[in-house]
């Protein structure tokens, strides 16, 4: 199967292989799961669950981290 899904990551449209998990998404973006917080359709997914959480068509993903601020 070579079907891809359309998802939105940090507000930008992206395509990812069907059946991909959030962990797969982070790997494809070369992000270290320890340094990023993942919000999937508005719910926070902790790192132990990133592999089991599959992406579906139209999903909204936010990847956030700490930056400088006051």
């Amino acid at each position: 199967m070579n079907v891809s899904l359309k998802v939105t990551v940090n507000g930008e449209p992206r395509e990812i292989a069907a059946g991909s998990s959030l962990d797969d998404l982070l790997r494809s973006l070369e992000l270290d799961p320890r340094m990023v917080v993942v919000e999937h359709n508005r719910s926070i997914v902790r790192s132990p669950h990133l592999r089991e959480r599959r992406l579906e068509e139209g999903d909204q993903v936010e990847l956030v981290h700490f930056v400088g601020g006051g």
């Binding site: 973006l29 956030v64 981290h65 930056v67 400088g68 601020g69």
Partner: peptide, 18 residues
């Protein structure tokens, strides 16, 4: 103090404050 922001996916360099 630190702020919470989107990871910039278009940057290759890791810029998180941690």
């Amino acid at each position: 103090t630190v702020a919470v922001r989107r990871v910039d996916l278009n940057r290759t360099k890791q810029d998180g404050i941690l």
